[in-house]
């Protein structure tokens, strides 16, 4: 995900403070315009994202070169266009070609099989449509930020430990050289 400063959320609440140096770009893909509108409105209201809606996975895929940070992807995308590719196929394509894009799958079906499938193909989370979907979508996005922060911290400490090792080695070499020269 591109640079941004996200404060870690307080677990168990919906309170989340998000600050971004650059607005994150989010694609919402659903064949139901009402779903696109409601999820987009919610993400804009809660996070201030730059959100773009698409009614098919193909349209979203054709715009992936804009490098969205997150794609919110419906599992079933063929209620309007019967020949439209389903969300699982689109997910596999995205994760193969753009592995850094985080995908949150959304489905009206509370099915363990669908959930396992989508997670296996690399989805970051799975949200079931219904009255709670917007809160759950919000939590899924917050979880992505937490993971992003953890990843940044791991990288930071990894860099720090590398620098420390190099410094210790330099001190040892310097000590040996100075000792050999009789300076110490």
């Amino acid at each position: 995900m591109p640079s941004g400063i996200a404060k870690a959320p307080i677990f168990g609440t919906t309170t989340f403070t998000y600050m971004a140096q650059q607005k994150k770009l989010v694609y919402v893909v659903d064949d139901d315009p009402m779903q696109v509108q409601m999820m987009s409105d919610h993400l804009i209201e809660k996070f201030g994202f730059d959100v773009r809606g698409f009614s098919t996975g193909e349209e979203a895929v054709n715009n992936l070169t804009n490098h969205p940070d997150i794609v919110v992807l419906d599992y079933y995308l063929n209620s309007v266009k019967a020949e439209a590719r389903n969300g699982a196929e689109i997910l596999r394509f995205i994760k193969k070609e753009f592995p850094n894009i985080q995908v949150i799958m959304v489905s009206g079906q509370d099915s363990m099989e669908v959930a396992v499938d989508t997670m296996t193909y690399g989805a970051a989370d799975y949200v079931v449509k219904g009255d709670n979907q917007f809160v759950r979508l919000q939590h899924a996005v917050e979880k992505l930020f937490v993971n992003e922060r953890l990843h940044e911290r791991v990288n930071y400490y990894r860099s720090l430990s590398t620098i420390s090792i190099v410094a210790v080695v330099l001190i040892i070499v310097l000590t040996v050289v100075l000792a050999a020269m009789g300076v110490i």
Partner: peptide, 17 residues
Amino acid sequence: WEQLKSAAHSLKPQVGY
């Protein structure tokens, strides 16, 4: 049946809202 399922699937959350 596939398209019937899809049509019902789309309507389901909407009637909830």
